[in-house]
Nucleic acid binder design. Sequence first.
DNA 1: GTGAAAGCGCTAACAC
DNA 2: GTGTTAGCGCTTTCAC
Lengths: 338, 338
Amino acid sequence: MDNITIKMLAKELNLSTAAISKALRDSHEISTPTKQRVQELASRLNYIPNAYAGSLRIRKSKTIAVVLPEVADSFFSQAINGIEAIAEERGYHVLIYLTHENFSREEAILKDFQSGRVDGVLMSLTAETASYKHINDLSSRNIPLVFFDRVCEEANTAKITTNDLESSYKATQHLVDCGCRNIALLSISDCLSISNKRKEGYEKALADNRVPQGPLNIFCGNDPAKNVAALKTILQKKDRPDGVIASVEKLTTDVYLACKELGLSIPGDMKVVSFSNLSSASILNPSLTTVTQPAYEMGKTAAIILFKSLEKKNFVLHDECLTLPSELIVRGSTVAGK
Amino acid sequence: MDNITIKMLAKELNLSTAAISKALRDSHEISTPTKQRVQELASRLNYIPNAYAGSLRIRKSKTIAVVLPEVADSFFSQAINGIEAIAEERGYHVLIYLTHENFSREEAILKDFQSGRVDGVLMSLTAETASYKHINDLSSRNIPLVFFDRVCEEANTAKITTNDLESSYKATQHLVDCGCRNIALLSISDCLSISNKRKEGYEKALADNRVPQGPLNIFCGNDPAKNVAALKTILQKKDRPDGVIASVEKLTTDVYLACKELGLSIPGDMKVVSFSNLSSASILNPSLTTVTQPAYEMGKTAAIILFKSLEKKNFVLHDECLTLPSELIVRGSTVAGK
DNA sequence: GTGAAAGCGCTAACAC
DNA sequence: GTGTTAGCGCTTTCAC
């Protein structure tokens, strides 16, 4: 069965394609009876306009792209939910691209967007991203870009973040209050501004409390086995940490396993806070103290701002930088019995 | 900055657009020196072909759609990873659509695909889906569709599943072996074939062991608070279950919380098995016995089959029904100390 | 109120 | 080996 086109409707009704087009868009140039005839036939034949013919004319695709490091992560999957909710509402389509933390993949993806495939982009940077040419190239093609969470500070556009510095400060302060004196910070990057913010908050809290800095810049990668091994090495040292802040959700399992394998009890021997949106945080062994980010809201907000810039000309994306608060939820990995 | 088009390149080089087009696609009709001139200019001006102009001509969009109930679920997010890996490799783009278990949303999404927006579709059904007209409508437009996990048995196309019946049987048998005599099955649907298969496996195992059937068809929804409340009601009865199979990952947290609130110990008072791909299963309290599905592989396989049908004409999708095995991983929620 | 025609950017027959 | 031309399906002047 061939697809129905405007041309076919035109032939069927002895009208021009122009008339059909106008009738379908309910133009006032077309008489009511004609409109009715056209619309009746269109719905009877189940006419669906070709998605790309219109895009080619109009130079709008009603499509946005979401560029993410990964999906198998509660933060990002919840953010997608927020984005999708708004896109659906506006009748937009969502293309998804995963960088797997790979910078050259990120470059290639953004480059493709110069093809006019998408009207706008929502993005969270790779842990490796340290140069911004690909981002500026996209901007120079007038394709609006909104960052969320892992933002590019250098880019002159909208950024939706959470209060990384403050929440990291709070998390560190909480560990100090729980008696920790040797607190490690597990990171995945020394490029990302969110990593740096979290580090700053951590350092500030330590300084304010006159607690010496613990093992820092423990960079963890994508291989859980390696992470566990690296953690075990650190945890077997004499001056091992008595507290740890995992700045990424997926490191939680690695920390728990390393402790388990070494027979270290949480929170007795070691206290743990994670930046995490895991819905199972409360049923972990022990339940996990988290810094929980407003993932859904961040995705939603980023999408709303992107659509604003898509809908209004002269909308200045640069002015739209929002910070939504995260929440420290104290559970059993820092306070026994919680 | 305006986008570079073939026309502009043609003018610049005093060639026809056809020559440019051929040169860029490295056609043998074009002389080597001309090709070089064209390619040099194209890369110097950073020419990127318009994504939709070609699609309109060729009637191929190099885009597939993935239609899912949700993303915030380990199974589906891992499946997306598998799909994306293959799509990336083939240079395809991936549109993502979430049904949120809503049938009319599913209908609307599939209907839109008749616009030629996508070349093919990968899909997991809604828990509500009980009629198939929208699926047949899509097939009649010759848009290949491959189901994975939540397949439509009635559809005459490829289906990638896991061995739901067997793994449910195994899970049930395991609970029986652990001493359970009153086993509940938590489901989210009575339409889905995977739900029915899991129910069959459960019933068969009970029958084979001459264990009476426990509370069945406890349908859980999207509201965790309601699920917990419903579970608590059941668990407070005199003849409360001593074992439960959660047929969906997200119900795990609800079961654990319900037990916690009632002071029931797992696995002492109550044993739990979940169909789950949670990477944190091993660090739950207690660690969770799971039926773990080959999520990544299922996504990947579904994508591979879809691309086969996209690339070869006369490829019979119907013949491509694969079943990948799930694995029962015994942990502490059924065997103390594990 | 309706139609003819141009053109979005690209490709593919078919000339030459 | 290169150019001309005719569309893909749609919208949008501009005539009538």
